[in-house]
């Protein structure tokens, strides 16, 4: 297997702008296991995820996509290297610091939604602010739900919603804190294609109209095609980088990686 693009130190074009990158990784290495059987999930990754941009991360299974996302979001510590989130070095951040980051600076969306089943849509959405000790008016939560197209579903519990609706509740929950970066791990992985399309359109709209930064891990070339750029990972290294991707183009590069 050989990469098509020899630019190993892929640098997204957006770094040229005056803005700080939303997330920057510098020589990040993440090793699992002990010396003999050590596996490098991330093998010296350096990259910048641009502010107000949407970056998709792709790669074969086991390429380190999820580890990259977890490391960038401070969910997982790195073995060496540095992680900068919105300009702050979080490599050695304490649990308290990471908690407050999760409250104010970052949001998460997952394949399996991870909503709290016992809370209504609006309670789920308000939860991050409540955990941050803020009083949240029902109105605020409903406004955010309305912005994801679920104004009439605020009193429903997750199980009473379709997959696409659940994922939009999850996005609303992530967005209520107005995070600097939204991390999405296979956000359309559990959705049918029309639900997936509406969720991706919502994310696209957030980037275009309010300059939201998004880092998204996905398997799906069609989903990746909605992003501004695509990073390709293989064996824990960045092996390729595409701008203004198209679904067939992404599929082709991915297929080349999986040979």
């Amino acid at each position: 297997m050989r990469m098509m693009n020899t630019d190993l130190r892929a640098e997204p074009a957006a770094t040229a702008t005056e803005n700080l990158p939303a997330v920057e990784l510098r020589g990040v290495r993440r090793t699992y296991g002990k010396h003999g059987t050590a596996v490098n999930a991330l093998d010296g990754v350096s990259t910048r995820f641009p502010d107000a941009g949407w970056t998709a991360v792709m790669g074969p299974s086991g390429s380190g996509k999820s580890t990259l996302l977890h490391a960038a979001a401070g969910l997982e510590s790195v073995t060496s290297g540095e992680v900068l989130l919105a300009g702050t070095d979080i490599t050695a951040a304490s649990d308290e610091e990471l908690t407050s980051l999760r409250r104010d600076t970052i949001g998460f969306v997952f394949q399996n939604f991870n909503l709290i089943g016992s809370l209504t849509a609006e309670q789920n959405v308000a939860l991050p602010l409540r955990l941050g000790g803020q009083r949240v008016s029902t109105r605020d939560a409903r406004d955010v739900l309305a912005s994801v197209g679920l104004a009439d579903r605020s009193r429903h519990r997750p199980r009473e919603l379709s997959g696409g609706q659940r994922q939009r509740v999850a996005i609303a929950r992530a967005m209520i804190t107005r995070p600097a970066v939204l991390f999405a791990d296979e956000p359309t992985g559990a959705l049918d294609s029309s639900s997936a399309k509406s969720v991706l359109a919502l994310l696209r709209d957030m980037v275009d109209t309010s300059g939201q930064s998004i880092v998204m891990v996905t398997h799906d070339p069609a989903a990746a095609a909605w992003a501004d750029s695509v990073l390709f990972l293989s064996d824990g290294r960045i092996v390729d980088h595409a701008h203004s991707p198209t679904a067939p183009g992404v599929a082709e590069r991915l297929a080349a990686l999986e040979v």
Partner: peptide, 15 residues
């Protein structure tokens, strides 16, 4: 799992 989810959405240990 529910508790971990609370942590993920910004809950701290004390909470």
């Amino acid at each position: 799992r529910d508790l971990a989810l609370l942590r993920l959405t910004g809950g701290n240990r004390k909470q």
